[in-house]
Nucleic acid binder design. Sequence first.
DNA 1: TTGTAAGCGTTATCAT
DNA 2: ATGATAACGCTTACAA
Lengths: 340, 340
Amino acid sequence: MITPPTRRKRATIHDVAIEAGVSRGTVSRVVNGERYVSLEAREAIESAIKKVGYVPNTAARNLVMQRTQAIGFIVHEPHSLFVDDPNIGNILLGANETLSEADYQLVCLVVDSERDTDRITRYLSGGFVDGVIMVSARENDPITRVIERLSLPATFVGHPPDLHELPFVGIDNRAAAAGITRELVQAGRQRIGMIAAALDRDSGSDRLAGFRDALGERFDEHRVVDVPLYSFRDGFDGMTELLEREPLIDGVFAASDAVAAGALDALRSAGRRVPQDVSVVGFDDSAWALRCHPPLTTVHQPAAAVGRRAAEVMLAQLRGEAVEIDGALVPTSIVRRSSV
Amino acid sequence: MITPPTRRKRATIHDVAIEAGVSRGTVSRVVNGERYVSLEAREAIESAIKKVGYVPNTAARNLVMQRTQAIGFIVHEPHSLFVDDPNIGNILLGANETLSEADYQLVCLVVDSERDTDRITRYLSGGFVDGVIMVSARENDPITRVIERLSLPATFVGHPPDLHELPFVGIDNRAAAAGITRELVQAGRQRIGMIAAALDRDSGSDRLAGFRDALGERFDEHRVVDVPLYSFRDGFDGMTELLEREPLIDGVFAASDAVAAGALDALRSAGRRVPQDVSVVGFDDSAWALRCHPPLTTVHQPAAAVGRRAAEVMLAQLRGEAVEIDGALVPTSIVRRSSV
DNA sequence: TTGTAAGCGTTATCAT
DNA sequence: ATGATAACGCTTACAA
């Protein structure tokens, strides 16, 4: 049992000034490392600071400076995805890296309920952050509206369709999907299907579009099943359905590695061998890809690089530079393993 | 290309007051929903607020109120773990849920480099948050010191050895480890080993202690290998070494599911069958557990509940209530699947 | 019920 | 080089 934390009153610049026998202005100058302070004063102040245990109050500083040196990183995802999707973590880490170098604090805000939306709105309005990086906004997202209303500097990862004038970064899902689909074609597969997922977001619909692009004439709507989430479970279910619709299927593009992993399980249950009977490819090159049997041929998505890029675009805006709305598509690559 | 975001000057209470023809005090009362405002004034103010697009400036409010309604959630982990470990995400979600109900904003801060440590220190000192929930502090963690120095209300998840008077929540790793080890014993395994991980943190060393407890006389130091991280890779390597040391091993307790998954792979490579030749158990009941072949018998760790509990302890402190230092061990359970 | 005014802890512009 | 002093936008006694 511990007693309620005694929150000792914090020392202010005023206290330091008195202790050191100078004015508050001089203390402020020392604290902010400005020139034009006598060695004498500086030393007196520094020891005073130590003595009274002074730490600057950022709320006050923010108030007068009108900035916070903090950037919000908003994750608007259903539970399962935040936990499952390694990309988000890597984007976060990448963004943090770049922001950190520029001496900005990244604060990650997760939106998980109706309540959260309201609170985040207040948080953003309240001037806690100088800008936001928004991951996986949905179409018609209330938070997007707030950002617009506040004209808060923002960078989106991915581009929901109703993102009019706001800059975004991301990968070219469509081209990458076409590329990975061609792996199936080049392997000589004849009846190629797709487990499409998350069609309500750009990444999902773009991947489907890319699949279609690659197949051209040979595209067959009957061979694509769509599932709500990029999840293992949905992959399993999707594959099961695909198998029902087209038992002779011999190639499948799963919209993500997690989906592919589920598909692999379903295929195994149905007695199909991979890659002998059917080839499967994924998307993301996440931890799933290596863990599967056989390991997946997939699209490598440089999540950390995307995060860094998002941070750079953010910083550019903060510096008042003009930025390309979509000048930041990060290139992907294909990694070939044994599932084709 | 978009032009630099024109940050239009934000309306203040003052503007609203003028627009509505009342004093700032009255506006403030309306904004904070206090009583004793005439209907007339209230209506005038509300429409004025709408008209000028007023949103309160939280920095100013914080300054005068000396609180922020925000709680920091500090993740101090090496890269790989943050991305790999589903527990952290679930703890975060659980904490957010409880905090959200109490109208607190959870802000997640990731510490990933030396620089970050300094910046977080400033951030915490700066009064951006009213308290912190600290996940996976290390022994002798500089951030722990800062928290102590500021006497900032805090709750730790897990308890690094040098956490003297600060409250923590968590699971009873030692008892749980003993329990899961007994599954191996009860299955009649004779040569039981352990892949211990992360011995520099309490969870790691407690799990080892529990293993030892369960085995008693039969504990054999030779059969435990220790690896640095709770990772798939380390699990693979650890199992490989264990096999070298003790080829006839027939039961292994892996310190986490990720480690167990790696171990399973190594076992497969070595031509051992699970569970016929060797039983393996994990810890966490994470997504790994189900994904393994065979699925893992493991300790179910209620991560979201831990997060909620941490948040409750935090809120209690904020209310000035006395809290038990370790009054919050969340119970675990064993989930039996087919790896034993 | 409403207005007035004194802070909250900084930074920044002046003189000096 | 340093000290006053005026903001910054808000809450909150206290008066009216």
